Structure formats: C-alpha cells, structure tokens
Computed example of a mutant assay.
Amino acid sequence: MIEMVAWYSMQFQFNSSEPIYRQVAEQIEDAIAAGGFEEGQQIPSTTEISKEFHINPATVLKGMNIVVAKNLIEKRRGLGMFVTNGAHQRIVSEKKNLFFENFVVSLVKEARSLDISESELLELIKRGYDK
C-alpha cells in the first residue's frame, strides 16, 4: 500500500458545483506541485483513494484520467500510477499562466482605469511584497 502522507490535507467539497472527479484531478496536481509526490513516485491507487475518502472508484478513475491525459501521471500496467518526469514543472508553468490570465491581466486593466502608471503599479506591487 502506498503511503498516504501527501493526501493529509486533501479535502473534497461534496456540496460544491465543481464535480468530484475534477476535484480529484486538482488534488493530485496540487500534491505533485507541492512536492507531495515526486517524479517517478507511485501515487495511491484508485481503490485506496476511493476507500480513504469514500468516493466512488469510477469517479476517482475519471479524475485520474484527466491527470493522465495531461501527461502528469502515467499508468504502468500491473504496477499502478506514477508521476511522470517533468510533471512538477509543467504544473507550475500552467499555474503561472493561469495566474497571469486570471489576476495580472485584470490588475493591469484596473490600474489603467485608475490612471495608475506602470511604474506606480510596480511600486504598489513592491509594497505588497514588503508587507
């Protein structure tokens, strides 16, 4: 049995509008990004995750297949699921791109609407880092 240490903080929102299988995929990705699972390391099986968190195994598998499709984990026949080489960096890059799209673009748009110059905005960001 795989050690469940990386899953200690995993939480599912069963009342959320986000489907559980997507939450499973996000939790696996977050565990890889945080270093809970290293490249080449085996992750818990569908059965282990479903038993631990009382989730239907088909739902867990659907979430895992999303992560497989992103080439972050791979199935090794008869052995289980393993984190692929480069998975951590791919996740971090994706998260940086999402940060840019979801926060930076709107921040710059709002700054422009308030007539905040680029240099003023950079100064405000520096102040934020100092806090």
Rank of each mutant, 00 (worst) to 15 (best):
I49P: 14
V68Q: 08
V24C: 13
S106H: 15
I2D: 15
I2V: 07
Y21G: 01
M64K: 09
I32N: 07
S106C: 05
E29C: 11
Q23M: 06
S17L: 15
V108K: 03
H88N: 07
F53N: 12
N85E: 10
M1K: 14
K96E: 13
R76M: 13
N85I: 15
E18A: 11
F12A: 08
D130W: 01
M10L: 02
A111G: 12
E123N: 14
N65K: 15
K70S: 12
E120W: 03
N102T: 07
E39D: 11
L114W: 03
I125C: 13
M1E: 14
V60Y: 02
S117Q: 06
S119M: 09
E123F: 14
L121P: 01
E110K: 15
E38P: 00
K51A: 07
M64L: 13
L79V: 12
G36H: 09
Q13I: 14
D30K: 10
R22H: 09
F82W: 04
G63N: 05
S45G: 05
K96W: 11
R22C: 03
E29Q: 13
K109H: 12
L61P: 04
K62G: 04
I28M: 12
S45M: 04
I43V: 13
A25I: 09
F82V: 02
L98C: 12
E123L: 11
